[in-house]
């Protein structure tokens, strides 16, 4: 199975990370800075970054800690988003209903598909998660009453007890930031918990785990459900941010992008997923503003990053730091 930087030890416990705290502080200050510029553009962009950061966190949790490389995680994002859209089409917009529903739907999908996917491993696992992602994609495309291939516009952003709390972009921004911080802290706690210890151990040596007395499959399935629900949460937020939902959210390219974001930032670090989502989306946005043919630059850049920056941006930063501290 895939094992990047296999000799890197797993830290025993979470430590307070100044860099991460700083990152969240910067995110909290963005709206104030944005007020001096194209406010709604900046808020929209960074909200999207944070939404995908939540989805990337889920992928890092699976890949980086559980060794389960999923190539279909966009399906969970899509499920969460479609739950909001479909409920909205039936006049239900209150998040006290739609948010739990989005989480339950994606968790249930994770439970069922995980039961099947986790029988396989390695490349076969990658491909079977892709298969379920594609199934979800085609089902969404066939939902004629809800826009089919074209997608569907939300009647309104989610409300809370009837109040339009997501009414302005800034409120949605801070809500998304709150969910991101909570997701990050949750993932971090889970990784270091008793469960997380078993989950990480299953990645290292499933046979050994079984002879110690762990039913590896069940633990991995719980992990898969956690990651699936996080994907659903990202979907709930994405639907609100875009006020629009379409099958394109679930395409295999989207799932691939989530993996790339995680690797961009550095696998198995959690905050790397956030850094990765931000750098990926901002890079895309920046290059697109530069030239129409930005993909001619973006593509080779991915190749170069793989060839020359092992361990992602976080790894790169660490090796640079190590070089300086040695002098």
């Amino acid at each position: 199975m895939t094992s990047l930087a296999a000799d890197k030890p797993v830290p025993r416990a979470a430590r307070f990370n100044v860099g991460v705290a700083l990152m969240f502080a910067v995110l909290a200050l963005v709206p104030f800075a944005a007020a001096f510029g194209p406010e709604s553009y900046v808020l929209g962009l960074v909200t999207r970054v944070m939404v995908f950061a939540i989805a990337a966190l889920a992928v890092d949790f699976l890949c980086g800690f559980g060794g389960l490389v999923t190539f279909g995680h966009a399906a969970f994002v899509g499920l969460g988003a479609y739950t909001v859209a479909i409920a909205g089409a039936h006049g239900v917009t209150d998040m006290t209903v739609t948010l739990p529903l989005a989480l339950i739907v994606s968790a249930a999908f994770a439970y069922v598909t995980g039961t099947i996917c986790l029988r396989t491993n390695g490349v076969y696992f990658i491909m079977i998660t892709l298969a379920f992602g594609q199934m979800a994609y085609f089902i969404a495309g066939s939902l004629a009453p809800y826009g089919g291939d074209d997608g569907i516009t939300l009647p309104t952003r989610s409300t809370l007890f009837g109040l339009a709390v997501f009414g302005n972009d800034r409120a949605l921004y801070y809500a998304t930031l709150g969910f991101l911080v909570a997701s990050y802290l949750l993932c971090r706690a889970v990784v270091y918990s008793r469960f997380g210890r078993v989950f990480r151990g299953a990645r290292e040596n499933p046979t050994r785990m079984a002879t110690i007395g762990y039913d590896v499959f069940r633990y991995q399935r719980v992990g898969y459900v956690i990651a699936g629900s996080l994907g659903g949460l990202a979907g709930f937020l994405l639907a609100n941010a875009a006020e629009f939902v379409s099958p394109a959210y679930m395409s295999w390219q989207r799932s691939g992008e989530l993996i790339i974001m995680v690797l961009f930032g550095g696998l198995g670090t959690l905050y790397g997923a956030i850094v990765g989502a931000a750098s990926y989306l901002l890079l895309e946005e920046g290059l697109a503003g530069l030239t129409e043919n930005w993909k001619l630059i973006f593509g080779p850049l991915l190749v170069i990053i793989v060839l020359f920056a092992r361990g992602g941006l976080v790894g790169l930063a660490a090796s640079v730091r190590a070089r300086f501290s040695r002098d």
């Binding site: 490389v69 691939g256 850049l301």
Partner: peptide, 16 residues
């Protein structure tokens, strides 16, 4: 390299 790294690099070539 790792399968994941192969996926990303070749994904980059697709985009290009």
């Amino acid at each position: 390299r790792d399968h994941l790294e192969q996926v990303i690099a070749t994904f980059g070539i697709i985009i290009f």
